[in-house]
Each structure stands twice: as structure tokens, then as C-alpha cells.
Design a protein around this nucleic acid. Structure first.
Lengths: 256, 256
DNA sequence: CGCACGTTTGACGAAAGTCAAAACTGGTGG
DNA sequence: CCACCAGTTTTGACTTTCGTCAAACGTGCG
């Protein structure tokens, strides 16, 4: 762990995957010490290929996705700092269940799956952590699925904006779109042109965008536009804003 | 376990959840011995309510689903013999993540969640089994998502028919629709009228239906209609038929 | 300045939702 | 044995939404 130990320490305090795990497990997993840099658009792994590694995103954004023979992508999910992926390959005969691609420059920690298999057999804490990774993935997919069944494209777009801004406090605010709108469109299962028009239609309820910056005048107003049509219990969705009579905003959860 | 012991024995040999588990774990879980009968349309549990039980379907069909304040359902999945549900509540502060309703008469085995929590803490086999339940749910959701994202209604309907007939061998065949078409429509996220029209359009490729019976002339022909547009690896989807030059059908997986 | 890339816009057509009426099914009881 | 009923499915007419294609626009960069 030589020169990266300072960074790794930093990682430990930040990355929920390691938080609370026995020191020994963490040391064991970090032994290989492979922090790797990927440039934008680089392929990280491919669906169906033999899986040797699992990954933790340290910085930047990665999308995981499936692709069919027509080249259409689906089940697209952008991941960022703190997210773990491909750990689930160990339940599937060591084959990757999805592809992953860097959608910005990013740094990943790559850990051999066999270490994970070996260690989780004897560490109940680690296998509990694995369970929570799977649980998280189920929760994410549930949000995606529920969102995709929401009424129209502007509601789905609103839902995504709320989730992307779930770390923000206050009545409203401005944030930078963390990845391209075309990726957001893939994530929402709609055409790029559709998300563009959807955003335009959201102007009426206080959403404006320019140069990749999104400004939301009032989170709870936006929340009223889509969340009532969503079946997900509010404590499972980071985007949901609860508003009291005065429109005070409460944040329940964060996605990052 | 008094009078039900014969039945339970039968269950053991059939239900994948118990198969291969240590005798002791199985005994412990089956101690409460609650086999309960539900009539069609009966509510089994409700999203958001405190979860005390998890369930194993012994016979009949159950649908799990989420519902929004407009009364629209989503994330609908029909389950039958051998399926486990609500076990995932233990990862979510003991609250049900979805509602469940009987969509035919059915028998369920109801086991206290606290027994599951207690036993899985000390039994690695049982917690591995839990992992595989979660894994299975992820796989199911992935199929649902992929299916909903990139197919028109006739392809999605074809996909469902193939999955429902995945237990059948031979070139083609007839089977009874195991639940109502309106449920199938919910499952596929489309309107009831749409699935009806979609079925009609499938007549051209050898699908006919009458009186709740579906006849498929040639599985691999139907498979050609939808599977090439699906991103799911073929070994993860029970419906997929692989066909050689001569149209010989191979079955990879079953869903029940 | 010009190029590459991502985004927006317009015109059009195809697909699916909506509503409501009609048709079909299986079961019940006279 | 038939008539009736409730529940389910099909069908038709209409509307809305979204995908598609392609051109125009904007931004950042060498």
C-alpha cells in the first residue's frame, strides 16, 4: 500500500463500503492496492466477460449498462464516488452482469473478486456488507423502474433532477449537471431530443438550464410535479422533498 | 409441525429456498408451522407497513407491486410456487418494500422475520441463501427493466409469453395463461387494451389465444421476434430459446 | 477561424393511452 | 336447459406522447 496509503486512509473514511468493517478485512482487500485511472469513454468491463475484479469509484463518473445486438443500451445507471460495482458477479458464476464505461475521467479502485470471495466466507461483517450492496442495487433499480413508469417525460426528468440535487439544502439552488444530458436520457430510457424538450417544459415550474447548469427555484414545487405519481416510499428515494405548509424543505436521504 | 409435517416434507423437496440448508435451520424456521390460505384478491401485506413475516408461495399466484397515490401500480411481479418474498424487509428497518396480493387462490407459508434474522446471524448457509434470494430479485428486475425499455408492445408481450412457457419442451405448444391478462399488462407496464392488441398482432408469427389458452406454434420463431432486441445475457433469461439452423429448440433456464 | 462535440428545434409519423361500448366467459339459480 | 350476472377481454374512435431524422445552434479548444 506504499505510496497510496494516505489516499487509502482518506478513502476509508469516505467510502461506505469499508466503513465499519474490521481493520483486518479492509487491509486484506486493499493489499493489491490497484488504483487505476480511466479517461472519458474508456471501457472498464463488458457484460458477459469473465469477471476477475470488482470496482469502487473514487472519483469521476462511471455508467453501468446493458446493451443489445442493435446497440441500444438499457438499465443505464451512472455511479460516482463511493459506489461499488461488479461485486455481484460472484453470485453469477464469475461473469459480469453489465458493462461499465467511464463517462468522465475517473479513478477506480480495483479489487480481485477472489479476495472478496475468500474473505467473505469467514467474515460475517463483510458478507453483511455485500448484502447491503445488493440491497442498494435493488433500491436503485426499484427507483429506476418506478420512474420509468411515471406518466410523462417531464415528470421523469424532474425526478432525476431532484435525485441529482438531493445533497442540496435550502429552498432551491443551482448545480452543475454531473454528466451529459444524453447519458441522462439513456438513464431515463428516453431519446435525447425528448429530455431536451422535457426540460424546456419544466421552465413553467421554475427549472432553467444553461451551459450544463441547472437552476431549480423551488425543490418542493418540483417535487410536487412528480413525486405524488411515484410509488416508492419517500424514505427510499433521495430526491423526494417533503414540504410543510410554508414550503420548508426537508431532506431525507442522499444519493451521494 | 404436527399435522402438516407430511406436507412440509413435500415442500422441502420442492422449495429451492430450503433445498440444501442444514436440517437444523429448516426445522427452526418451520417451527411456527403457519401455512395460510388466501382467497383471490386478498391482500397479503402492504408497502410501508411494519414487516413481521416473510412468505413462501406453496401454491397459486401472488403479485408483488408498488402503488402510488393515484392508484397506479408498478413494479408488478407475479410469483408462484417456490418463490420467497418480503425476506428483503430485514435489510430495510423491518418495513415492507412492496405490497402483495393474491391473484388466485393460494397457500403461503408464513415465517416470522425475527426467526430469519436470528438464525441467519449464525448460519452462513442461511445467509448465503438470503444472498441468492436477493440475487434472484435483481435478476428479475433486470429482465423487467430491459423488457420495458427497448421493445414495442408486441415484443414485450412475446417476451412474457416465452418466459411463461419456459418450462415447456418441444418446438411449440399450448399452455394456460396462469393469471389474468390484465395482470400481465400491469407487469409489462402497458394498458390492458394494448396487450390485447399486441396479442392480436402476434398471430402473424404463430401465436393464437382463446379462452385463456395460449398456443405458440414455434418458440424459436417467437424468440427471434423479441430476444435479439434484449440486452440480457441468454443464460439469465428463462424465456430465451436458442435455435440452431434446423430450428431445434434448446431450453436454458426455467422460471418455475 | 474552424472543428468537434453536445444540444436544441422543427416537421412528421408511429405507437400507445383513454374512454366507452360491445362481446365473450364461466358460474348460479330458476 | 336456459337466462342472467359479474368479471374479463376485445374492439373502435380519438388524442397525446414520444421517437426519428435532419438541420441549425452553441460552446470550448487548438
Amino acid at each position: 500500500m506504499a505510496q497510496n496509503s494516505a489516499f487509502s486512509k482518506n478513502l476509508l473514511s469516505d467510502c461506505s463500503f469499508f466503513k465499519g468493517l474490521p481493520e483486518e478485512d479492509v487491509k486484506f482487500l486493499l493489499e493489491a492496492d490497484a488504483i487505476r485511472y480511466y479517461s472519458k469513454h474508456a471501457q472498464i468491463c463488458t457484460e458477459g466477460d469473465p469477471a476477475n475484479l470488482f470496482y469502487i469509484v473514487l472519483s469521476g463518473w462511471v455508467k453501468i449498462y446493458n446493451i443489445n445486438s442493435d446497440g441500444d443500451v438499457s438499465c443505464v445507471q451512472p455511479l460516482t464516488h463511493g459506489s461499488v460495482f461488479c461485486a455481484d458477479s460472484i453470485f453469477e458464476q464469475g461473469v459480469n452482469l453489465y458493462s461499465a464505461q467511464a463517462i468522465s475521467e475517473c479513478e477506480l479502485m480495483e479489487i480481485p473478486l477472489k479476495d472478496l470471495v475468500e474473505k467473505s466466507a469467514t467474515s460475517p461483517e463483510l458478507s453483511a456488507r455485500l448484502l447491503s450492496v445488493l440491497s442498494q442495487r435493488i433500491a436503485d433499480m426499484q427507483v429506476t423502474l418506478a420512474c420509468s413508469e411515471l406518466k410523462d417525460s417531464s415528470q421523469r426528468t424532474a425526478c432525476l433532477l431532484l435525485r441529482l440535487s438531493s445533497w442540496m439544502t435550502g429552498k432551491g439552488g443551482t448545480f452543475k449537471m454531473p454528466y451529459e444530458k444524453s447519458i441522462a436520457a439513456e438513464q431515463l430510457g428516453m431519446d435525447q431530443a425528448t429530455i431536451s424538450r422535457a426540460l424546456a417544459r419544466l421552465e413553467d415550474i421554475g427549472v432553467s438550464s444553461s451551459n450544463g447548469e441547472i437552476h431549480i427555484k423551488n425543490f418542493s414545487l418540483l417535487s410536487k410535479h412528480c413525486c405524488p405519481h411515484c410509488p416508492i416510499p419517500s424514505n427510499r428515494c433521495g430526491g423526494r422533498r417533503q414540504c410543510s405548509q410554508e414550503g420548508v424543505v426537508e431532506i431525507k436521504n442522499h444519493i451521494f
